[in-house]
């Protein structure tokens, strides 16, 4: 086995820099204002190549969740959860819910970004339940 690793295209690098600064940024299209995830060379909505890296509000709500019971990576010993979160800005992202877990269904629960680490200490944008 080995640790998990991020995909680092030339467009991903600035995002991970912003995450390391605890201030997650994504590209926003200069022409149609669409937020983009994953980072990329042009806007999938209007094809404009012009964009600006802007900070996220950090707010969103859970669209779905799973719990891993099998180990695939050294730095992810099971059990652990993974959540899909619809960000307030629009993009759907994958993350982990840290801290208290909801009773019953997790879908629709409001969350906010909480920076945390995997078992190897690598910093990640994760989520916690919001008030």
């Amino acid at each position: 086995m080995a640790n998990s690793a991020a995909v680092l295209s030339m467009y991903d690098e600035p995002m991970w820099e912003s995450i390391r600064a605890h201030d997650w940024h994504l590209q926003q299209c200069d022409d149609c204002s669409e937020w983009r995830y994953p980072p990329g060379p042009c806007c999938p909505k209007c094809l404009s190549p012009r964009s600006t890296w802007r900070p996220l509000s950090g707010r969103g709500e859970i669209a779905s969740w799973v719990v891993f019971h099998r180990q695939y990576f050294d730095n992810w010993p099971p059990p652990y959860n993974v959540v899909a979160v619809k960000l307030a800005e629009g993009p759907l992202v994958i993350s982990n819910l840290t801290g208290p877990e909801p009773e019953g269904s997790w879908i629709g629960r409001p969350v906010e970004v909480a920076y945390g680490t995997d078992a190897a200490g690598t910093l990640l944008p994760q989520m916690r339940l919001a008030e």
Binding site: P38, S64, W65, F68, Y72, N75, V82
Partner: peptide
């Protein structure tokens, strides 16, 4: 299949687990 590995999210089965969870809840 590989982009979400930093959060431990890997395997096509997990992608379908995430999909079925929401489908089942709805």
């Amino acid at each position: 299949y590989v982009y979400h590995a930093p959060w431990g999210f890997t395997s096509q089965g997990a992608l379908y687990a995430m999909m079925f969870r929401r489908f089942g809840e709805l």
